[in-house]
């Protein structure tokens, strides 16, 4: 096994460092998802309203984040924004900011789609029993939309986890960045270490993303009963 470079993985505290990198990946993804999903729900609700200027602004916001690649957004926020507004945030906060805004944009479209797919008679019945707009959302539309949103939301969440691999470009010490440090530190003596380290990283990502899909399945089944 030595020739595969397993000794690299467990030399010193390399493995703990990789786990530390994984934790950075997870908390950034988790925090951005929490903020993004809350913000996205609000924006999604606003987008179903009849107010045209508001809808256009929100549509522009969505298209901005959907069209521009995440790498560009990260660079913009990390390198250009400080020069522009003298706002110098640490890299991990920039990451959460960009990811949360991105998640909010994408999720607002998911929420909007789900809200308008709730059958029309549900909305009308709600209005008929005298619910106001907020109550209609809170008690009738959102609970029903939730089931419809679920698959797309899990898809979005797994994408966020995977996209954290771009964070190494703005100096965040995520799992890929640490992995690369280990690979390069041993590159001359263990040229095959790259396969092992990336293999382990692949496994890490798999565990995180697969547990998300398992969760989705569980919630889905629970909903149907």
């Amino acid at each position: 096994m030595g020739h595969l470079g397993t000794n690299i993985l467990f030399a010193g505290n390399n493995f703990q460092r990789l786990l530390g990198g994984l934790w950075t990946t997870i908390w950034i993804a988790l925090l951005s998802l929490i903020i993004g999903l809350i913000l996205g729900t609000i924006l999604g609700m606003l987008r179903t309203l009849k107010n045209r200027p508001l809808r256009i602004v929100l549509r522009l916001y969505l298209e901005f984040f959907r069209i521009i690649p995440t790498v560009v957004l990260l660079f913009l926020a990390y390198y250009i924004l400080p020069r522009q507004l003298n706002l110098n945030l640490p890299a991990d906060q920039v990451a959460v900011l960009v990811f949360a805004l991105w998640v909010a944009a994408e999720f607002s479209d998911i929420v909007r789609g789900a809200l308008i797919s709730v059958p029309q008679h549900q909305r009308e019945s709600g209005l008929a029993i005298g619910l106001n707009h907020w109550q209609l959302f809170r008690y009738v539309l959102l609970p029903q939309a939730l089931t419809l949103e679920l698959p797309a939301t899990i898809n979005l969440a797994t994408r966020v986890v995977k996209t954290t691999s771009l964070l190494m470009l703005i100096s965040v010490m995520d799992v890929i960045n640490i992995g690369q440090q280990i690979i390069e530190a041993n590159g001359q003596t263990h040229p095959n270490g790259i396969f092992l380290i990336y293999g382990v990283i692949f496994f890490f990502y798999f565990i995180v993303d697969y547990s998300l899909s398992l969760l989705a399945k569980k919630v889905d089944i629970a909903k149907q009963h």
């Binding site: 030399a11 010193g12 505290n13 390399n14 460092r17 280990i182 390069e184 530190a185």
Partner: peptide, 8 residues
């Protein structure tokens, strides 16, 4: 030149 050793 600039790298990280096994102790991090």
């Amino acid at each position: 030149y600039g790298w990280v050793n096994k102790d991090g």
